[in-house]
Write a protein that binds this DNA or RNA. Sequence first.
DNA 1: TTGTACGCGTTATCAT
DNA 2: ATGATAACGCGTACAA
Lengths: 324, 324
Amino acid sequence: MSKFDEIIKRSGYSRATVSRVINRSPHVSDEARRIITEIMNELDYIPNRNAVSLSTGQTKQIGIVTAMIDELSLTFINQFMDTAMDYGFQTIVYMSRGDQQTEMQAFEDLRSKRVDGLLIVTCVNDPHELKSYMHYGPIISWQRMGNDDIPSVAMDQAQGYRLALEHLVSKGYIRIANVFGRSGSLNTHSRREAYEKFMNSRGLPVWREAYQYSVFSSSDGEAAFRHMMEQGERPQAVLCSNDYAAIGIMSEARRQGIRVPEQLAIVGFDDTELSRVLELTTIHNPIAEQAKQAFYHLWRVLGKERLELMPTALDYRLIERKTT
Amino acid sequence: MSKFDEIIKRSGYSRATVSRVINRSPHVSDEARRIITEIMNELDYIPNRNAVSLSTGQTKQIGIVTAMIDELSLTFINQFMDTAMDYGFQTIVYMSRGDQQTEMQAFEDLRSKRVDGLLIVTCVNDPHELKSYMHYGPIISWQRMGNDDIPSVAMDQAQGYRLALEHLVSKGYIRIANVFGRSGSLNTHSRREAYEKFMNSRGLPVWREAYQYSVFSSSDGEAAFRHMMEQGERPQAVLCSNDYAAIGIMSEARRQGIRVPEQLAIVGFDDTELSRVLELTTIHNPIAEQAKQAFYHLWRVLGKERLELMPTALDYRLIERKTT
DNA sequence: TTGTACGCGTTATCAT
DNA sequence: ATGATAACGCGTACAA
């Protein structure tokens, strides 16, 4: 006999009334509540979540899919967790470590009703394959994925990029080297386009030869800068796709005796903790706000509210520090 | 009607036979298997895990409790995940971010049968309170917790510490400064004791004035070294409780123009990736092996096999590089 | 406010 | 090899 039945038996009340007490329904007499609560405590009772989930069809649990947890994704994840908790949802992390099969576990768990919804922070499986899983429950992604089959809270990074360009040009930096991330990514495409359009609109030369790709970490940044130095024509400024790359460039430049910002301006992206410490000019990326929106998206869908992709009212912001 | 029932209806077979096919029981005719499998595919069927768990009383899921995920814990977690997967167990991460209530979620999930067992990587709740949760399922910890109420796969760090001391003294370094982590921790106690006993056994002076505590990160290491320099008598060697601290000390020493290892020897602890890159002499910590043992512990208990704390046959190893 | 009766989706124990 | 039937632990219309 389960503890639940034991409570029913000892209290003399029915299954429904016991259930009401457990779920804090107001339609219970004080006496019933008192008696049943007491027995619950005696028995060290706690509901079996599998049974609850089976019965209600909900787990109140949201899975977070990510390959790794670094500083940037952590900002996002933390805010998401807090928001989810505010709404009574648990979060569990599916850390794939870049392994496709491990990652699929999360999606299969959505399918088999282990989680109510999924937040994709990083994803290594093909978005097109994943698309079909949206059928089993709401999925939201941080970054845009492929053909937008899966909705995301991503913002167009071109907006932030233009801010940086505006800033650099207004300060007189014309020969700007662009340092990108993944060469085929939507963000890179968007940034590159923003740069070219901007330069054209100002009648300034577009410096395609200086494009560099796959610069993610600070050591990538160091290598990238060394590469620049070997190319003859030096940039007046470097615009990076993330703060780490910028930090690598900054330290390598200084190591080579180049003064920042007098001889070289550097602009990062994201406004991470580290950029603050190292006084790097950067673009503030409203990550926390995006995380909130990500949860709201899932929540609305779970609540069966009709929902179109919400209007993103978030903005990038230039943070001027000591590298420009 | 559930898909399960739909399969029963369409195939004409019974509930039991369908279940057998799902669970790959050999006691099914080929024909039955073929027919039922086909219908399962048509229906895009997948078992509801809540129902399965409710029925079997097992989730085949293990929770990993941790405050944060850094390089060191990641080594441990990765190996644990791989091992668990080999044995057919899923793992999910409960990232508490240092919040007690958030962390309790994991323990309550053990209690409410959401996970079969728990691995504690980092823990912010009182071990004494947590002890009672062992009643609901197996719990294993990486580090030792309090009075060993909760079993752990931790090794006595004194063993590794002695290795380092032996090495330093054999190289002629006598005036050794000890840099510890949390002052009240079992590890710190064990290290300090190892140091004092070792020095006494060699008839060498014990240098208590040079003890430093709460040195965790590389910036802590920098500060610690600056502090040493202000104290007059300089150490010949510094022995650290982790590689990061050692790296901080190394960089600060070099910044001050002190040559390593000629004027100052430095030994780290853990043998992290970074220590390899920076050529730091350190103690290899068999973390991956500990992770395996952690899983085996849970697995044996879950399998109802009788189990005493397994004999730890793991060993520390000195890795000599360029800082001694 | 309380109780009855059924459903949630699956496994497991018997028989046959 | 297959099939009834009973768990598993709980929520919830609906009725009282």
